[in-house]
Design a protein around this nucleic acid. Structure first.
Length: 119
RNA sequence: GACCGCGGAUGGAGGGCCGCUCUUCCCGCGAGGGAAGGGAGGAACUUCCGAACUUCACAGGGCAGGGUGCCGGUUCAAACUUCGCAGCAUAAUAUGUGCGGGGCAUAGGCCGGGAGGCGGGGGCUACAUCCCCCGUCGACGGAGAGCGCCACAGAGAACAUACCGCCCGCAAGGGUAAGGGUGAAAAGGUGCGGUAAGAGCGCACCGCGUCCGCGGAAACGCGGACGGCAGGGCAAGCCCCUCCUGAAGCAAGGCCAAAAUUGCGCUUGGACUGCCCGUCCGUCCCCCUCCGGGGGGAGGCGCAGAGUGGGCCGCAACAGAUAAAUGGUCCUCCAGGUCCCGCAAGGGGCCGGACAGAAUUCGGGGUACAGUCCGCGGUCUGAA
RNA sequence: GCGCCCGUAUCUCAACGGAUAGAGUCCCGCCCUGCGAAGGCGGUUGUACUGGUUCGAUUCCAGUCGGGCGCA
C-alpha cells in the first residue's frame, strides 16, 4: 500500500452515505469550514466535499476541493479510524494555499476530537 | 517614438518529490501492486442559431401556433450522407479505420452593391423643394385590406362646421386654404398665369403613381408617355402578404436488475454421511375425520410481471469522469511590476503569471482576457 | 448538462408607449413629550447595463450582466 494513497475507497461516493452522515453525525464549525462527521463501521477513513456555487466559478470551486482533498491526503493518518467526514467551506472562505488548508483542517480535527489516539 | 482604439496570432519553459483517472500488458487465489502510453480551451464560458443522433407522433389537405423578410457573391463540419481509392484489424468482397471528391445551415459570418433615415458641407442669387459630396445608422415586404393609438401644445391629429386672417356682403351668412401660430407630424415644393380672394383651377420644372423602352446578373437606375395627385405617422401595436416549420431533448433513449409488493406452481425443516436408506432433534394455526390421513392458511423454495435502490450502454476519432479525474508542492530559467543603491553601465530586495475547467458530438454567432508579437486607424512629439 | 422564467426606492408591490415614475415600509429633519414610543408635517432615495425602433421607451426588439425554477 502506498503511504499517501487516496483512491476511491477514501471518498464518500453514494447519496446514501452522505445522508447517513447528515442524519446521525455531529456538526463542527470553524472559521472557514463546516463539517459533519460520524464513526463508520470499518477502518476506512472517508471524506466528502461540498462546495456551493456561491463560492465562485468552476475554477475557484475546483481549486478549493483540490486543496482540501490534498490536505486530507497528507494528514489523514492523524485521523481516527473509520471516520466519515463531510466538509463544506463557507461562502466567504479565503483559502489561498495548501498551508492554510492544512491549518484549517487541523483546527477542525482538534475541535471535533477526531484525533487518532491510538485506540 | 509615445499613448489610445480596433482586428489577428500566442496563451510561459524545464526538472524533482507526493497524488488522481483511463487503456494495454505483466505479477498475484484475492485485496492489490508494477510498467508503458493518453489526460481541458480559444473561448471548454454563454445557450443566441443550426446540423447529427435518440424517442414519440404521422393517410391526404387545410386551419391554428411559432418563425422569416432589399439584391448579389463568398465562407463553411474529425458529425451525418454518398462515391472513389488505399491498406491495416479479422475467417470474411461484410464491418471498423485512413485519405480524397460531392451533398447538406430558412434566418449566421464576411465582402460588395441598391434604395432609405439622420447629421454636416457645397450648388441652383435667397427660402422651400431638389441635386452633389462626406460621415453615420439600420430586422430594409405592405400604412393603395381592416382595427387600434398619436400625450402636451394647437382651431383642427384624420370621412375638417377652420382660431387669427383674406374675399363677397349693411348684416345674417357664404367662399377660401395663400399668410400667421402650435406641434415630431397639419390636404406636395418653387415660379408664372388665374381669381372677388384663393386653390393642381391651368401651365413649366421638380416630386408621386401607372405603363412602355433602354441599361444592369439582380435589387434598382435612366429616359419617354400618360394621370392633376389618390391624402399624415406608427406594422421592433394587432394585422395582411411571401416563404419556412411535427414535438421533445443524452436528465433523450436502451439494457441488466437487489429488497419489498403482486400472481402462479411446488412444499415438512435441520444435523450425522461422498450419496441413498436409516437414526436423532425440531415441527405454528384452523376445518373435516372411518384416527391411517386429507384440505386450507402462515412459513419456505422456484418461476413470472412491473421496475425502485444500484449498475451497464449511449460515451470516444489518443480526455472520457459520474459527490464528478486532468492536481499539489518545491527549484531553476523566461517574461512582468515595484522599491533601494549608483552620474551611468549595472547590482540587490520584494511581489508575481490574463480570462477561465470538458460531461453526446460538430459548425456559426456573442461575451471575457495579463503580457508579448503583427496589421490598421487616430492624437501628440521629434528629425530630415 | 438540457430546458424555461424574472429584473422598478432599503424591502413588498403599482404604473393602455405620453413624461414630475406612484403607494405602504425604511431613513433623515421638524412638531408633539420631562424623555421615548405612537401620531402629525415635510424631505431623500430609481426603471440592472448597452444599443436599436419611435416625435417620445419602465413598457416594444436585440445583446450583455445578475437572480430564480423545472427535468434523473
Amino acid at each position: 500500500m502506498k503511504k499517501f494513497a487516496f483512491s476511491r475507497a477514501s471518498r464518500l461516493r453514494l447519496k446514501k452515505e452522505f445522508e447517513a452522515v447528515f442524519a446521525s453525525g455531529k456538526k463542527t464549525v470553524t472559521r472557514d469550514l463546516v463539517a459533519w462527521h460520524y464513526p463508520g463501521g470499518d477502518k476506512e477513513k472517508k471524506i466528502g466535499l461540498m462546495v456551493s456555487k456561491k463560492t465562485g466559478g468552476a475554477v475557484k470551486r475546483n481549486r478549493l476541493k483540490r486543496l482540501l482533498r490534498e490536505a486530507f491526503r497528507l494528514s489523514r493518518k492523524e485521523l481516527k479510524e473509520g471516520t466519515r467526514l463531510i466538509i463544506y467551506p463557507k461562502a466567504g472562505c479565503a483559502m489561498q494555499n495548501l498551508a492554510q488548508a492544512r491549518q484549517e483542517l487541523d483546527t477542525l480535527r482538534l475541535r471535533a476530537r477526531l484525533n487518532d489516539d491510538g485506540k
